[in-house]
């Protein structure tokens, strides 16, 4: 890791066998200070104009992401592109409801994304449960588990709404208002407690980089 201010607070990594532990991350996420004002401004401009989406369909809303790639909407012209791996992606689009099982994978994917990373809550379900509000296996509010930058309400929102959402996200990135990565690092214990309350068999590292 090329980061100087690394804090080596060890994580428990419970659920892993003793010999597996060194193979996984055992440090907590860090807060990062922005670089100099104008440098950061320029970098934010670049970040806003090259949004790579993690193509992980977490719910029915994933279907609304597909039309954006078609010739009708052509999201590439705004610098948006789907990316098949969390390592390279910068935006995580949570496509609606999340079951507990999906949530576990989403947490893992989110933590594997490299900062600065952004989360879009797509659809009502991410705000307050939506039509799955009384389901035994879907979470009600996303912001308890991940720092969410923007929400797009709808069930499901049309692709146009998703475009509007990306536009808004871009504006926020350019203005430097999106700081999900640092928020996650700052409130790491709170997020972890919430996540572990829901995900019953936590057989993965506490933090996946």
């Amino acid at each position: 890791m090329d980061n100087k201010e690394i804090n080596n607070t060890k994580l428990a990594n419970e659920g892993l066998s003793e010999q597996d532990r060194p193979l996984f991350c055992d440090a907590r996420p860090q807060s990062y200070k922005p670089l100099g004002k104008y440098v950061e401004k320029f970098l934010n401009w670049a970040r806003a104009n090259s949004l790579w989406i993690l193509g992980y369909g977490t719910g029915c809303g994933a279907i609304e992401l597909r039309p954006l790639m078609t010739a009708r909407f052509d999201m590439f012209r705004w610098g948006l592109a789907p990316r098949p791996t969390p390592r390279q992606a910068g935006v995580f689009v949570i496509g609606g409801y999340m079951s507990v099982k999906t949530l576990k994978r989403v947490i893992r994917s989110y933590e594997q994304m490299q900062g600065p990373k952004f989360v879009i809550g797509l659809g009502s379900c991410t705000i307050n449960g939506g039509m799955y509000w009384d389901s035994y296996n879907t979470i009600n509010r996303l912001d308890h588990y991940l720092p969410v930058d923007i929400y797009i309400t709808g069930c499901m929102p049309r692709p146009e709404a998703l475009i509007a959402g990306f536009n808004k996200l871009k504006e926020m990135i350019k203005a430097g208002e999106t700081d999900g990565q640092n928020e996650y690092a700052r409130n790491f214990d709170w997020y972890k407690a919430n996540q572990k309350k829901i995900v019953k068999d936590w057989n993965m590292p506490d933090y996946n980089w």
Binding site: L43, A46, R47, N49, S50, F76, Q114, P116
Partner: peptide, 18 residues
């Protein structure tokens, strides 16, 4: 110039794992 922006963005990433 999208490839150039992508490169700038990728180099501006705050974290990286080796």
């Amino acid at each position: 110039w999208q490839p150039i922006i992508d490169i700038i963005k990728n180099n501006a990433r705050r974290t990286s794992i080796s």
